Amino acid sequence: MDWSLRACGRNGHVTYAPDDPALRDRLRTDTPVGEAWRCLRCGTFVVGAPLGSGPARDAPIVLRGRALRDATILRLIAVFRWAKGVLVLAAAYGVWRFRAQHDAVNRAFNQDLPLLQPLAEKLGWNLDQSGVVHTVRTGLAATTTTLAWVGLALLVLGTMWMLEGVGLWLLKRWGEYFSVVITSAFIPVELYELAERVTATRIVILLINIAVVAYIALSKRLFGLRGGRPAHDRELDEASLLEVETAGIQARGRTTHRPG
């Protein structure tokens, strides 16, 4: 997939006319229907006046190629984190609302549960050994203080996931570090749960989180990996169309002035 063409098809082309005459000539051409300028993202010549002009250093920063693909993947992860954050925050709100009324709910649950026994027997469902019933009873048996702490923990967790999503969506480097640290912190917990009971769901979640940590850390060169921040910045500069064309002009100049 050509990620640059895909982004231009969705968001439109980005053209710019730099002040430098040599660089300007490499981005402009004449056609039977008028002048055309190269898109800074996909490199296609687009008929019409440029969207902007001025010094090359003031040109818009446009992600292209691999950098654009990485940005798309990070934003997909951000959406997933937001979805988890919303669910956890909703759970925190539910626990907070429930904590002051759990005694009444506990009594109602214990009174109404025997009414389900005849139906459960017909379905072959043993209520006394049911994991769902056990989980509900454990929650109902918790004190108000315990439920308040559980609600607070869920609130903090949901807020962290929402913040992580913001950082990834905005393509901030702190968001990438935050995502790697937070996701890595849950891997030991997932390993512990997997040691207690192996399920396909737990295996898939563990593998996904490991893949997310490895992908972000390596592709974004975090913690000094693959040259660290300097190598990451050089990679972005080398992918810039203006940088490529400027390097071409400089290389042609060196060839022209090479001593015979």
Rank of each mutant, 00 (worst) to 15 (best):
A49D: 13
L170G: 04
E245H: 13
L152F: 09
G151W: 11
G158N: 08
D20A: 15
S53C: 07
R66L: 08
N11V: 03
V86R: 15
T159V: 13
L87C: 13
W161H: 15
G175T: 02
E245I: 04
T183F: 01
Y177W: 09
G224H: 01
L89M: 15
W82S: 09
W161T: 10
T44Y: 00
A251F: 13
Y177F: 13
A92N: 10
A185S: 12
F178I: 02
D103L: 10
R41N: 03
P21E: 06
K122P: 00
I210H: 06
R97E: 10
T144W: 05
R226N: 08
T138A: 08
F98A: 07
T138C: 06
A49I: 06
T138G: 10
G9H: 12
L206N: 08
R69H: 09
R107G: 07
T145D: 07
R28N: 05
F45N: 05
A195Y: 11
R202H: 03
R41A: 01
A100F: 13
A67M: 11
D128V: 02
G248P: 01
A247F: 05
G34A: 08
D20H: 09
F186P: 01
T143C: 03
P21W: 07
L140E: 03
V150W: 09
V189F: 11
G224P: 00
L140Q: 06
T183L: 03
V189K: 07
W125K: 11
L147K: 14
L113V: 01
A78C: 05
M162T: 15
V62C: 06
R97M: 14
M1T: 08
L76S: 11
R226L: 13
P50V: 07
Y192C: 08
N209F: 11
D103S: 09
S179W: 02
R107A: 06
W96R: 13
G48E: 09
L127S: 02
L116Y: 07
L155T: 12
N209R: 15
E196A: 10
L113S: 04
Q117S: 04
H134M: 04
C39P: 00
